[in-house]
Design a protein around this nucleic acid. Structure first.
Lengths: 151, 151
DNA sequence: TATATTTAAGACATAAGACTCTTTATTCTT
DNA sequence: AAGAATAAAGAGTCTTATGTCTTAAATATA
């Protein structure tokens, strides 16, 4: 797969939060149960997003996590970079450290075209857009063995 | 990165062989030295390509590996699928097993567009095309710490 | 103030990916 | 037939990703 599992979880969790923005904070326990993820593991993942200023967190009763900014301003690319790093949008497809525009590897040009498009799609796709689609079209955010449809 | 390191190695090795097609068999030792890879590790990788009928191998003196078919008929996609499996071109970007065209995840449509293009590029790009470009434009196949330019 | 609720932090465990090493099988050359 | 050259096979190691568990810190509520 193109994204790490950790990154998948991060995207789904932020989307869940985006769908519940009216509440002040959403507890991580609730997110993990709805998405079928380990609570502790998800906690670690969301810590990173909190450190990266993508989310806010609050301890104690009625605590949890929330988006640090309006969902319209948070792109999928931001989350991917926060979790998986810039490698997907930056590196050589063959892992050559000498590969660059000046000294391209054989696949450089082919990959660059696709990669730029991938980056553009990720940069343009915001949490708000995805949350809207989930609401309007009833799209799936969880596996069936978790609470199947987003409520 | 989008491809496993193993897959990177496989693509570079097959390209090296494609550049030396005039010889009957190319020893794996020679490939590993030119590309700066472990001989034993590369041997294991090329074993898979041999099992998948992408390469032929021959033991003993003057042995080595060669392409099983003309380089014009071997696409990068074939090699990627042989090593990394079909996951890159098939799975859900968020790793949801319930995601499908009928029950799409929120990112399904965005990803499908990019993925289809990626698959098309990989399917259209043959070893022959890449080998030609390497020859004509002096592109790089090895890291600098190995034998830097393809000879 | 005491207790319950929640995230933060860090140690630990398991699995998969990436490599290494040794032995075996095959083929050529002498 | 003997020895050298080569890939095949399989066991073993190291690293990274993934996941679990325990304890600490912060906050609200009674």
């Amino acid at each position: 797969m193109i994204l790490s599992k950790t990154c998948d979880h991060a995207i789904r969790a932020t989307l869940y939060v985006a769908l519940h923005q009216e509440r002040n904070y959403v507890p991580i326990r609730e997110i993990s149960e709805h998405l079928g993820l380990s609570f502790h593991f998800l906690t670690k993942i969301l810590q990173v997003l909190t450190q990266q200023k993508i989310m806010n967190s609050f301890k104690g009763p009625n605590g949890g996590v929330s988006l640090a900014r309006p969902a319209q301003t948070i792109s999928i690319k931001e989350i991917v970079v926060a979790i998986d790093g810039k490698g997907l949008f930056a590196g050589c497809m063959l892992g050559l450290d000498t590969c660059s525009d000046e000294h391209p590897c054989p696949l450089h040009q082919q990959w660059t075209v696709v990669r730029d498009q991938l980056e553009a799609v990720f940069a343009q796709t915001t949490l708000a857009y995805l949350a809207d689609r989930i609401r309007n079209e009833g799209l799936r955010l969880a596996n069936l063995d978790a609470s199947s449809l987003v409520s």
